[in-house]
Design a protein around this nucleic acid. Sequence first.
RNA 1: GGUCGCGUGGCCGAGCGGUUAGGCAGAGGUCUGCAAAACCUUGUACAGCAGUUCGAAUCUGCUCGCGACCUCCA
Length: 491
Amino acid sequence: MNHPLHITNSLSRQKEQFIPLNSPFVGLYVCGPTVYGEAHLGHARPYITFDVLTRYMQHLGYKVRYVRNITDVGHLENDADEGEDKIAKKARLEQLEPMEIVELYTNSFHDSMRALNNMPPGIEPRASGHIIEQIAMVNQIIANGYAYESNGSVYFDVINYSKSNDYGKLSGRIIEDLIAGAGSERRELEGQEEKRNPADFALWKKASPEHIMRWPSPWSDGFPGWHIECSAMSMKYLGETFDIHGGGMDLLFPHHESEIAQSKGSCGKAPVKYWMHNNMITINGQKMGKSLGNFITLRELFTGEHKLLTQSYSPMTIRFFIMQAHYRSTLDFSNEGLQAAEKGMNKLLAAAALTSKLKPSTTSTSDVKGVRENAYAALNDDLNTAIAISHLFEGVRIINSVYAGTEQLTADDIAHLTETMNLFAYQLLGLKDEIEASGDELDGVMQLLLSLRADAKSKKDFATSDRIRDELIKLNFTIKDEKDGTIWTKS
RNA sequence: GGUCGCGUGGCCGAGCGGUUAGGCAGAGGUCUGCAAAACCUUGUACAGCAGUUCGAAUCUGCUCGCGACCUCCA
């Protein structure tokens, strides 16, 4: 492949050529959702980003094992609710079993992912199904001297670990600051007094009596710490060292930093070669997040049922909107931005569909090979989907011009361009047509109406012909009169 | 307070020292009975100040503004 893929590695903060540890196999782990609520727009970003990455790597010939977890064991919530388990708390509110909540939101998450046309990961392990592996890992870390038990809980000993390891390398933290409890507004966290040092983090937490989600362990009835699940499950399915670990930038610290420490603390090896982090989606310039309460769920976007939405947006519009920005930039939500994405995407897909109607010429007036080369170059340059799309619009221009007769393409070039559009728009960027497929019956009815309209037009009876068109428009049909007939589509 | 990042034309959003990003919207034109679509043309952009350079939106410094992480968060 003469198009080497480069990706930004958070470890080095630089673009690096992607070279798999064990080509052609690629191990990819992406932090999945905590299933205690509906997935929102912010969740769509990493999963679309890494879906495109997976699609592209597969296209390049790699055998990708894509692992994405479901976090269904509760984590501490240190807000006004005083450290209740998020899932347990929600369960009590709704009078449901914790696992019912987990199931509900897991299914909902899957529905949204499917709607966005994200391919399912190859393995989607649940944290609750890997308690044994997590306990084993904690045991190993204790045995290696990097963790200690305290009152039924187990904490990672950051100080001791740092003597021979560089805790903070990924996130740029300075260990002394963490030890000092830096941050003038650092909150008083529950269980702080159990730690030897403020920088230490939990590997296992003893459950308080009201804590519903709990599992037996050598130390207490409790639950695993927040970071250990990803370490245990990535190691189980991808090995001690694998290629790419992805997730949102907000997970960089402490989550991913701690994952590195846990893996090195247990097996002595750094777990990941390339760390990739997508930036946040913002709303009014501020991060969209659960805790801020400023999120719009994917379901709300699909239905338009949210006070900030002026209309509904289809899953593909969301996908296109996200891909029109580079994954490492923040992306600001707005109705205007979404509407622009919707129109642009429809234009792109309409042109892609038009390729089958192009008539070949003996010469070409545009460089169709450049479109493909540029699109490849964009994806190779840190998965720059925004640039790739901009080049596809050059393809759109060519297609429409050829169709309009102002440009010409040879049969070979038409085939080349068609293949490019299909490859990038559908296969790699993962777009799909959302226009309802029409049955033969509907098409028959439409042809009848359009022929009546054509008759009226030929008699200059424009009142009748416009009436037919206007009424159809009200029913969300689009009618286009072209040189050799009338085309209709249903939106 | 510490670490990191951002500030681009009406809106969104690329950009990594010199060449048109692109989309949406706007204006004009072609086509059309009209419309829709498409095509062509088009606009005042790089927060501010100073510096480096033949040349800076792109590098350096300062100023202003915004944000992320440091606590659960994609």
